[in-house]
């Protein structure tokens, strides 16, 4: 998705640098940078969310106090992460699983080998949360199970579930580039997995109940989506959650949707946490 960079020239710079940020933060801008020497504030917004008159409306009241001029330019989406992706190490989770890029040599001494070219999607195996999810999955019998991987990113966990014998796997991601990337990685690993681009509304749309739902996202999104996960899990099904810190665990397991779930196993790595829960009767 392309971004719009709005460059705002300010005279005087202070305190209007802060006021501009405060005003624009009420619009869907997600980040800002400042350059005091050049007397500039830059604000960033998704192309589809940018409305020029909205920016004019929130800046115009200050025009009698400061000179405020802004211009907008489009920044084409490229793989900003390319430099890192060109040269990273493969990831090993015990002897169970190796995650590597196409440029690494083939590994034969692992039960599962997954090849990922991430192209700016989450899930290369380098993050503690992905590794802990893989550890949780190691002890699950996926044979003939239906599996949902929510916030699939590169598709890494969906691929592993399929390799471990799952009957049907669905991967969903809200980011278009992640959706495109997971399809590439499914092909690269020769697995037949359904890829979908969208949010939690797709879970209800697809409709089937699952035997396992895997979600490595973040606390707020997980809390928001727990009701949907709950209504799409079979009795006795497994729910794997990660993407949050140890300090967030209580907020999650005390959520009312998880009443009747048993916490089977909790793994913690460098304060990140991953939970394995089973849905009761």
């Amino acid at each position: 998705m392309n971004y719009i960079e709005v460059t705002i020239k300010l005279k005087p710079f202070r305190p209007f640098n802060e006021i501009v940020v405060a005003q624009l933060s009420g619009l869907p801008f997600d980040s800002f940078t400042e350059d005091e020497d050049e007397e500039l504030v830059k604000a960033y917004i998704l192309e589809g969310d940018y409305v020029q008159t909205d920016v004019e409306n929130v800046l115009s009241p200050f025009e009698d106090l400061a000179k405020i001029k802004f211009t907008a330019s489009k920044i084409e989406k490229v793989n900003w992460n390319q430099k890192w992706e060109e040269n990273f190490d493969a990831v090993e989770v015990g002897e169970f699983c190796c995650v590597r890029a196409p440029f690494h040599v083939e590994r034969s001494n692992f039960t599962h080998e997954i090849i990922i070219e991430p192209k700016m999607s989450f899930g290369t195996g380098h993050h503690q949360t992905t590794q802990m999810m893989i550890e949780h999955m190691e002890s699950i019998d996926f044979t003939s199970k239906t599996v949902l991987d929510m916030g699939s990113g590169t598709g890494i966990l969906a691929i592993l579930a399929k390799q471990m014998g799952a009957k049907e796997v669905v991967g969903i991601d809200i980011e278009k580039w992640a959706y495109e990337n997971m399809i590439e990685n499914f092909d690269r690993n020769n697995v037949d997995i359904t890829a979908c681009n969208g949010g939690e509304e797709l879970i209800a749309k697809i409709g089937k109940p699952y035997d396992v739902i895997i979600a490595n996202i973040n606390k707020n999104i997980l809390l928001g989506q727990l009701p949907t996960y709950n209504s799409h899990l079979n009795t006795g099904a497994l729910l794997l959650l990660s993407g949050f810190y140890e300090t967030d665990v209580d907020d999650l397991i005390q959520a009312k949707e998880l009443d009747g779930y048993a916490l089977i196993h909790q793994i913690t790595k460098e304060t990140w946490c991953a939970l394995k829960l089973r849905k009761g009767d």
Binding site: K42, I75, N81, W84, M120, N218, N220
Partner: peptide, 25 residues
């Protein structure tokens, strides 16, 4: 300056960190 919970690999995070070879994700 990034809104809480809203960091993503697009500009300005992507170009600023990516140029230094950091794993943006």
């Amino acid at each position: 300056q990034i809104k809480g919970g809203a960091a993503n690999p697009s500009p300005p995070v992507g170009p600023a960190l990516g140029a230094k070879g950091v794993n943006i994700m």
